[in-house]
Design a protein around this nucleic acid. Structure first.
Lengths: 239, 239
DNA sequence: CGCAGTGTTGAAGCATATCAACTTGGGTGG
DNA sequence: CCACCCAAGTTGATATGCTTCAACACTGCG
């Protein structure tokens, strides 16, 4: 059930059998959410953290004028709110962007891990730090890349992250967002997103049809995006 | 020497005397950097993490065309690269924006903390999570706030963060960045920054002269920024 | 004294937003 | 089973926020 999480952590360091078992035993009570449903509400104090087993979810904040900014995208194997364990209170909401299957880890059990399993603790810490590295890359993309490059960068990132958890199929992956949601990720208008996507498609860089993204020219896509996957820390290393 | 760090952590939870002593004992070999000097290089693997005792520092990435994006600002009491402890390799550089005084914590000592002091471990983890929360707020500001509101938001954030470590004086605080650096923080051009700053000054919201920012109308500043300090987690709570 | 980095200003151009209309397709109730 | 309905996608026109370029002013420092 938590295979994607094990792939995620396991691609950054070696997990002992004991650590795997511990993770399996604390991740319980799996639940389904429909697309559009809130998985965690802004301002809440969840007593557990949520692991995404399948589907796409997003962290977001809503502005006074009703506009929305998505600050993170999550896929299978991601904890969507592990940070709420030390942080306690959610300063943003988390919404399911597709049908989502999740499991929960009680904060008491996580605390017990920090008391007795220092290596696993560091790996969980690492997991939240990779989220932070992704945040920084998004800041760079929003501030200093063209919107075209920002889009290309996001596609690169998703492709690599989904490869880690074996959610790609050749050069394709499921991508169930609407253009409206995608615009909220990028911080641009839907109209402009639509036109820029068409340009990238016409250029033969990638396509996005039937909720599926297919990369046509990976070299060129990386070039446009100035993509360097280093920030994703995808290499086994003692931590 | 590490008073600012203790104020930082101490405003989020109670620190035991033992924890304080441990932090004091592992933070050693203080060093100075001049404005403009790199404190940590991109791609390096520092065997220690760096605590900023005094001054302003920034995390940044440089694009192929030479433009730069600053992804985080750090002030006294901030670890500038605590994340490098589990992450290992720096995916970005860290530069001193003013004269900086720093201290170092060896990664071996940090590791020992994760083995024996779970509560202190959670507080260090928390410290990196607050960085993440700030990242998210910057993403929101870049994506869905006007540049004017983004600037206002940054001023609000800095004021509150500096209050925590007692680095404000009434409604003022030292702010030694150039407009060029500030533009790299916001992801905009210097020209536009300059004009927007003047508008805010003319409106009587805040001033920025002689490396000092003075807030003239705090209410209005928060209103323009839609500022809510919740994301900074400034409340004592068992973690 | 003179230079270099910073701040300021104006003009012109472009990227992106906004507004509005129209198309398409899947889902549903009559 | 068809009609229609609504959400999503697409397109064109217009408006504007922000960038770029270029020139000039200011100030601290060697």
């Amino acid at each position: 059930m938590i295979e994607a999480l094990l792939l995620n952590l396991g691609s950054r360091d070696v997990l002992s059998a004991e650590e795997e078992n511990r993770l399996r035993s604390i991740l319980v009570k799996d639940r389904h959410f429909a697309a559009g449903e809130d998985i965690v509400a802004e301002g809440s104090r969840p007593p557990y953290s949520t692991l995404l087993l399948d589907g796409f979810a997003a962290r977001y904040k809503v502005m006074a004028d009703g506009s929305r900014q998505i600050t993170a995208l999550h896929v299978a194997g991601d904890f969507v709110d592990l940070h709420a364990f030390p942080l306690r209170k959610m300063d943003h909401g988390i919404v399911a962007l597709s049908a989502c299957h999740v499991a929960f880890a009680d904060h008491g059990d996580l605390r017990a891990i920090t008391e007795r399993m220092p290596h696993l603790t560091r790996l969980l810490w690492l997991d939240t730090l990779i989220d932070g590295a992704i945040h920084r890359e998004w800041i760079v993309a929003m501030g200093r890349r063209s919107k075209r490059a920002q889009i290309a960068h996001l596609v690169c990132e998703l492709f690599v992250r989904l490869q880690v958890v074996k959610r790609t199929r050749g050069e394709s992956f499921q991508f169930p967002l609407t253009q409206i949601e995608m615009a909220d990720v990028l911080g641009i208008s839907v109209v402009h997103l639509n036109k820029t996507l068409q340009a990238l498609r016409r250029e033969g860089v990638f396509t996005w049809e039937n909720r599926t993204i297919t990369i046509v020219d990976w070299e060129r896509l990386q070039e446009i995006a100035e993509f360097d996957p280093a920030y994703l820390s995808i290499h086994k290393e003692p931590r």
